[in-house]
Design a binder for these strands. Sequence first.
DNA 1: CACCTATACAGGACTACGCAAGTATCATTT
DNA 2: AAATGATACTTGCGTAGTCCTGTATAGGTG
Lengths: 183, 183
Amino acid sequence: MYMSLKIALLGILDLAPMTGYDLKKSIEASVAHFWSADQSQIYRTLAALVADGLAEVEVIPQDGRPDRREHHITPAGRAALNDWLRSPLEPETPHDAFLMRLFFVGTLGVPATRAVLRARRSQAIAMLAGLRSVAEQDQTHREPDDRAPDDLGRRLRFATLRNGILHAEAELAWLNETKEALG
Amino acid sequence: MYMSLKIALLGILDLAPMTGYDLKKSIEASVAHFWSADQSQIYRTLAALVADGLAEVEVIPQDGRPDRREHHITPAGRAALNDWLRSPLEPETPHDAFLMRLFFVGTLGVPATRAVLRARRSQAIAMLAGLRSVAEQDQTHREPDDRAPDDLGRRLRFATLRNGILHAEAELAWLNETKEALG
DNA sequence: CACCTATACAGGACTACGCAAGTATCATTT
DNA sequence: AAATGATACTTGCGTAGTCCTGTATAGGTG
């Protein structure tokens, strides 16, 4: 959890300098399946990066529109990013509201329990469909004979999608198993 | 995310009245695989429940030790719990620091990427072993001919463990697939 | 012409949470 | 005799995050 939005911003700024506004859109377009951030939180975190010397602002005047405050990653920022990427992963403490619901819903009886499981099933199916369509586009837009230097990065971005897909499938398998176990 | 610790506390207090201290231990013993909470956060949230009329305190003097401030769920608390259990599940916005790491680690090259995946593998194996041992104890301690009124609750508590196990297995399967994909 | 959307940012109010330390006493262990 | 661990709760500090509102202006749509 710690520092993760800072890292997300540094990681994206490492690919290209951009404004807070651009970052918000970039997050929605590329890492939304495993991370999300509020607009105001992005601006605040960006200000923190600048304060820490990890990013710098280049003001680009525009007419009509507000100035672009384009943020560039600094060498210190790149070092902080790389340090974090190589640091040990702290095992995350789980917070799963759905499992909590299931844990306690038994007192309301079998019909209420089934309703909770059905709702989860709908969500899992929607999630799976969303991930699959993004993954297909990813496969389609890919050059057939890609020997580009960012080939590793592309494979890894695809792998994060596959992760979501396999977990969504596991969730559906678990839902079937659990439905059976309720008789 | 919202209200979930309140719900966890109400859910546990619905089974038996207890102190904040007891709640901390109860959470560690029963829902730790999908929820965790800091001690001070438990006390704060408990105070909020009392302020909202969802729980009441019964002070039980003890000699030597501090008084037990035993918290009991109120009818309003039970109603709030049941309302939440029947409310629609808000789809959770994901925050997965590991996938973020993987997404950006490509710039550091294949060896650093493999290191990240290996670390994840160790964690997944440890997680799986932990869940399996809890699940086995659960199976063993269970009465063979259980027709108790809380049979549904017991099955659901077991189902939350199975959920964790299936996801840990899915994670390992994904790790194997991803390792292959890196060549 | 009114409304909506996009671009671009700022700031307050609030919730949730974790870490750390402090207060107090008894029982057990070294 | 001193350290530790269990019971039981409190307080302060800092981080991370959301929601909502406000400030501008340009361009397109009904």
